[in-house]
């Protein structure tokens, strides 16, 4: 690894372990301040409902997204959250429009820049929203606007899809056909799309390898 990458890794570790402490301090502070330590069984029962799924998704996401986002981008994106719906698309879009390759130092710089910007803007928008919550809640909750937010993922991935698929249409055929057929056959999988991302990745990689060996791409 080059110096910038090595340093980014070192700083990233410091920040992410600090973030672990900060994140754990929140419930701990609530318990101490209000003298309200919860019953262990309640926490364990609650965890049982979500941990098996989300711990698995967590492992899958780290393995899948780290090569795409780079060192700085990964350390930042996993702390600030909303990875699939915001951070990864923003990094992807920025690298594509700047014409840099993921996995290179240029890609690393642009991906980190995009994810950092994304995190700052999101944090500021939420902070502003919280300050003005009484004013904006009726607008955000209005039934007329609901379809806009319900359809944010197709609105986001439609544009991103055109950019990527138009440049690499041969590579996109296999994963796209598979995913469309899968979701048509088993619509209930829509709630588990995070788990299906690595499935799409494996299919795309296998198809790409075959086409590469045959000299089609």
């Amino acid at each position: 690894m080059r110096d910038y990458m090595k340093e980014t890794d070192r700083y990233g570790r410091i920040w992410i372990w600090s973030a672990v402490v900060v994140v754990l301090m929140v419930p701990a502070a609530i318990c101490v301040y209000y003298n309200a330590w919860p019953e262990m069984t309640a926490v364990l029962k609650g965890l049982l409902g979500v941990a098996p799924i989300y711990w698995t998704v967590g492992v899958i996401e780290v393995i899948t997204y780290t090569p795409m986002l780079g060192v700085g981008g990964t350390y930042l994106a996993f702390v600030t959250g909303n990875l699939t719906s915001l951070k990864a698309p923003s990094a992807l879009s920025a690298m594509e429009s700047m014409g840099v390759k993921p996995g290179t130092e240029e890609g690393e710089v642009i991906s980190t820049l995009a994810i950092a910007t994304c995190s700052i803007v999101t944090t500021l928008v939420i902070a502003a929203g919280v300050c003005l919550l009484a004013l904006i809640t009726p607008i955000l909750d209005s039934p007329a606007l609901a379809p806009a937010f319900d359809n944010i993922l197709p609105a986001l991935f439609g544009g991103l899809g055109v950019v990527y698929i138009s440049k690499n249409w041969k590579l996109s055929v296999a994963p796209l056909v598979f995913m469309i057929c899968l979701f048509l056959a088993v619509p209930s999988l829509a709630g588990s799309v995070g788990v299906l991302v690595p499935v799409g990745v494996i299919i795309a990689l296998a198809a790409a390898r075959v086409m590469y060996k045959k000299g089609w791409v």
Binding site: T64, P67, M68, T84, A88, L92, K101, P102, G103, L153, P154, F157, G158, L160, G161, Y164, I165, N168, L171, S172, P175, L176, F178, M179, I180, L182, F183, L189, A190, V193, L196, V197, P198, V199, G200, V201, I202, I203, A204, L205, A207, A208
Partner: peptide
């Protein structure tokens, strides 16, 4: 790397 991105995009496009 491109295939990884396309795999991710495909999952979300399929979900639609």
């Amino acid at each position: 790397m491109t295939s990884m991105f396309l795999g991710m995009i495909s999952a979300f496009l399929g979900m639609v």
